[in-house]
Amino acid sequence: MTASPVRMNPQKQQHTQAKVVTLSTPRSYVARRRFPQWLSTLAGHILPPLVTLAFLLILWEVICSSPTASVPPPSRVVSETWELIVHPFYVGQGVDQGLFWHILASLKRVALGYCLAAIAGIALGALVGQSDWAMRGLDPIFQVLRTVPPLAWLPLSLAAFKDGNPSAIFVIFITAIWPIIINTAVGIRNIPQDYRNVARVLRLNQFEYFTKIMIPAAAPYIFTGLRIGIGLSWLAIVAAEMLIGGVGIGFFIWDAWNSSRMSDIILALIYVGIVGYLLDRAIASIAKVVTRNTLSA
């Protein structure tokens, strides 16, 4: 029984091998085409945004080309800001710093405010998600407070901290915390009853339950909140810095506006956009690594 298929196999293989030999010409043809194909896939992803960008730049150039236009065309933006572009690490007096230092100062504020928001947000979200009483007590307050625009907090925090820097950090904190709280709470409410039962049968204590069940199970939700939070933080920091002054990309923009340096503003906007995008990607990739095992049972 078993012998005959074994004997048949080599014959089959010979047969296939013969086929491969006759097909050798098309195979080499395919091999020759493989490299351009790989390249064309890449080009397929890179070309469309490049084409769109070029089109928009040309459109902008054409619209703003008249000398009386209030917004400079891209060519003038580049020529006027060339010093800023090539010297990002320039160190001067007071707020006269390279763009890198402005962005770094903003990032530091965001980092501090955002980290505090992440810690407090996950803790409060866990509380609201775990306890019905905490939810009934806190949720209405959260729902009202989260609709307060970030900058509306600034006068209050300036009054409380009597200094610009902690006030800006507080604004970041209060901006980023709501989506983190709400998403964490939803994530924890959605932990399957089975996992809770496992914890109950094993008699895990509160701390073990928090670290071993709650955080991993709610991680996808928590990271959604963290991603929304980082976006909002970056939105708020520019506005807050415009008001508090000092080194920071927000004040750089405000300063440029006061000195009518439109090109500087445009360059700063591009940098703000790129940094915001990178922040979002950074949180998204951390989320991808952390939650890779959580989503599917």
Partner: peptide, 20 residues
């Protein structure tokens, strides 16, 4: 009167923790 490890349960849908 409470769950405990002296009465282990095998749940219908296995209830393994997917991140472990």
């Amino acid at each position: 009167d409470a769950p405990g490890p002296d009465r282990a349960v095998v749940f219908q849908n296995h209830s393994l923790l997917p991140w472990l």
